[in-house]
Simulated assay, not measured.
Amino acid sequence: MFKSMSSASNTDFASSVMKAETLMADFIAQNNLSLSVADQLPSLIQSMSPDSTVAKAIRCGKSKTTVVIDEMALCTQQSLFERMKSGPFTISADGSNDMGKTKLQ
């Protein structure tokens, strides 16, 4: 069965919007920002890219961003557990940003 061209482009567009929302959620999580930022970030992106149809379609507020981040964390956790099962592993802690007065050795 063949997909019509408009159906394929709708799927591509939906995937692009989903990717943009995921990247936005990842940015919030990576930078340890408050989830309340997600309520205003889509309108900022839309004002920065007024000609982008993908930017106009982003609908990712605080609630949806929370769910996206939770799903990304679950996928990362499962991937980490799979790698841990495959053999020995080490965990490294970087103390270079430690604000305490105790020197790490």
Rank of each mutant, 00 (worst) to 15 (best):
50 P>S: 02
65 T>P: 05
11 T>L: 12
58 I>A: 02
88 P>C: 12
82 E>V: 06
54 V>R: 02
88 P>W: 12
53 T>N: 14
12 D>F: 09
32 N>Y: 07
105 Q>D: 12
67 V>Y: 12
26 D>S: 12
32 N>F: 07
37 V>Y: 07
88 P>M: 10
15 S>P: 04
75 C>R: 15
27 F>D: 06
41 L>P: 01
99 M>G: 11
88 P>N: 15
9 S>Q: 13
37 V>W: 08
94 D>C: 02
16 S>G: 11
101 K>M: 07
24 M>T: 02
48 M>Y: 12
57 A>I: 01
16 S>K: 05
88 P>Y: 11
6 S>I: 10
76 T>M: 12
71 E>S: 11
95 G>R: 08
87 G>C: 03
2 F>R: 09
52 S>Q: 04
88 P>I: 13
42 P>Q: 00
52 S>H: 01
45 I>F: 03
14 A>T: 05
18 M>Y: 10
24 M>N: 01
75 C>D: 13
51 D>P: 04
49 S>Y: 15
57 A>G: 02
62 K>P: 07
89 F>A: 10
34 S>P: 09
64 K>D: 05
89 F>G: 04
96 S>D: 11
104 L>E: 07
15 S>V: 04
43 S>L: 06
11 T>Q: 12
39 D>Q: 13
84 M>F: 08
54 V>K: 00
61 G>D: 03
28 I>W: 02
3 K>Y: 14
89 F>P: 02
63 S>E: 08
81 F>L: 15
93 A>I: 15
56 K>H: 05
70 D>V: 07
59 R>C: 08
82 E>D: 11
27 F>L: 10
29 A>I: 06
103 K>I: 13
4 S>K: 14
103 K>D: 10
59 R>I: 13
67 V>K: 15
59 R>G: 08
49 S>T: 15
18 M>T: 12
5 M>Y: 12
41 L>C: 03
23 L>G: 08
55 A>P: 00
